[in-house]
Design a protein around this nucleic acid. Structure first.
Lengths: 343, 343
DNA sequence: CAACACTGCTAATGCGTATAAGCGCTAATG
DNA sequence: CATTAGCGCTTATACGCATTAGCAGTGTTG
């Protein structure tokens, strides 16, 4: 246990050469490699093989600057089961891409309660660059990151923070607009929207896609708050004689759908439901909501590849939105005759 | 972008002191801290605050030897969805413990197809120690780890490999024996065992707990192979007039249970089923099998804490088995009168 | 035969930090 | 008044490696 780690000096001593020679044998550049004859090289390599020596990556990094390590920072802990379904697909994509590109991942656990990038001990800097994951972004930290020289890529679109933020996001606005078009094609003209319309970029994007796509349809009810009993929400939707309701949160949709079913209100017969994004596996709740899917794994991959481009080639800031596939589901139907009669 | 990172030298210049003074201000040990008057300290800290300087963890590690980073090595990729349910609970425990102890996690992605600890560039060594996760262990690498001076802890019991292996495992043998006792207390005397009884330690442990606990019960059928159609397995179990069957693999149990149900054979009325370990959430398949639960999260936590003890205090090798709680389930019932008649 | 190039190495340096050792100064002590 | 004991710093060194510069010896050229 007390046996100190082997160093190049040890190898050099055992092989009867200098430390520099060992270093050359290990990573001889084309010009310098051939300056060491095969015989000496063999002798050194024999010692390396026998001792199982490997260069200390820390010292290596000291002089080379790069580590082939990518940091992954999450503002929320990544693995707790409540979050796991959300984070795992991202991490899967990140891990796969990192492996292909020959990078390891440094998972930053965030010291103490407050997770911060710029904390006391920014061990983050050990990595060559970092991916930032999570819904809650600290504005100030983002600004500092943009201003600084540390390469990073955000997963999820981010507004400018003293400069453009490199990101890989989901095309929520486009997908939302597509769903609105589909709803209108089904004949719906009286529409409700339940969910936030401000705050995080991902939330805003949905609203931005939604609003202009409405066209000649009428937004008869909006509920931008969240904490309301689902029964009341349903009452309000029906009172406004909406025939189709958009939810930003799957959980809200599930709750309202359950109440509707309980009251004998048919979905989509009497009321169509559309969810803007699908965070959880379909199997967990019986319903397949009409919605769009977030390409989380692909986002992880793309972000990783973008980060490596920035690290290795000092590539310029890129901003990418990946397409979200429409999930047909079975909660959106054509306007019923009863609806038409009521109008 | 071209702005080089700040170093202590820069801070020193700006504050009009020496580099060493900056270092003292940053991490003054009790004896040395008070050697620097508040005024100077303030001046230096002001510059640090204004510039946002943070010490390079690499250089820090160079001199301190430790990095507050724990490596996590998995022989199989951790996040692919097939594996995710298996690995996630471990990672959850590891992440929580690491966070509490102030460590970050270095996830080793394994270069290329073959995942190896001792590869070309053992990036692992950047961490202070490592946790090894996964069912498939490379014997040779384990031996080298045991022989070496790099601190590690295995998750899952491991046989000696040229010396005792530090691990946190599950008490499968004890839990299995408990289940056997319970089965016997229900009156069962004709028992079947389906699953491997050799190979990985976790498999062997189940068999080791099973065999001696049988006592006066009779092992009327064993199937140590795996790849057999579930129908044939069921036929063989029934032909042997077993009244209770133990499975090591949940998947096998699910398959046989499904066939039995399809054929109108009642579980546990006609045949009791016990599963030795529960790998997947109960909700995913309808049945709650009588089994034991593997405390994966606790294992991750314990392994992390053990590793930190080894890293920080050079603690001796520990080998711990955590209790597996018995899952009552509804696939184990008392011997039916029909069974008794048949005997 | 002097000048020079090439071979096969070694010595020296720097990366950014922590820390032991030391140095000039003032105040307290004998 | 000589000595010592803090005080408030600075200087110097080491960590393990990559890399540049250079040096001794041999051959090659003009």
């Amino acid at each position: 246990m007390a046996t100190r780690r082997l160093t190049q000096k040890d190898i050099a001593r055992l092989a009867g050469v200098s430390q520099a020679t060992v270093s050359f044998v290990l990573n001889g550049s084309p010009e310098n490699a051939n300056r060491i004859p095969a015989e000496t090289r063999e002798r050194v390599q024999k010692v390396i093989r026998e001792t199982g020596y490997v260069a200390d990556p820390v010292a290596r990094r000291m002089v080379k600057g790069l580590n082939r390590i990518l940091g992954v920072f999450t503002y929320e802990p990544a693995f707790p089961s409540a979050q796991a379904d959300f984070f795992t697909p991202f991490l899967l994509g990140i891990e796969e891409a990192a492996q292909e590109l020959g990078y390891d991942l440094l998972l930053l656990t965030g010291a103490g309660v407050k997770r911060r990038i710029f904390g006391e001990n920014v061990r983050l800097r050990l990595s060559d660059g970092c991916i930032i994951l999570g819904r809650q972004f600290d504005r100030d930290e983002l600004t500092r990151l943009v201003a600084g020289d540390f390469p990073f890529v955000a997963v999820g679109r981010r507004d400018d923070a003293g400069g453009p933020v490199p990101y890989v996001g989901g095309g929520y606005a486009v997908a939302t607009a597509t769903l609105v078009d589909r709803v209108k094609a089904m004949g719906h003209r009286r529409i409700a929207y339940v969910g936030l319309n401000a705050g995080a970029e991902s939330t805003v994007d949905r609203w931005i896609g939604f609003q202009p796509a409405l066209g000649n349809a009428e937004l008869v009810y909006t509920q931008f708050a969240v904490a309301q009993p689902p029964g009341e929400t349903l009452d309000a939707i029906l009172a406004a004689r909406a025939t189709c309701v958009f939810f930003t949160e799957l959980a809200d949709a599930i709750a309202v759908d359950a109440i509707a079913r309980h009251r004998g209100i048919s979905v989509p017969g009497d009321l169509s439901i559309v969810v803007l994004g699908n965070h959880i596996r379909a199997e967990e709740h019986g319903r397949r909501f009409t919605s769009f899917s977030i390409p989380r794994e692909a986002m992880g991959r793309a972000a990783t590849e973008m980060l490596v481009r920035r690290v290795e080639n000092d590539a310029p800031v890129e901003q990418v939105l990946l397409d979200c596939a429409i999930v047909e589901g079975d909660t959106l139907g054509p306007l019923s005759t009863q609806h038409i009669r009521n109008t």
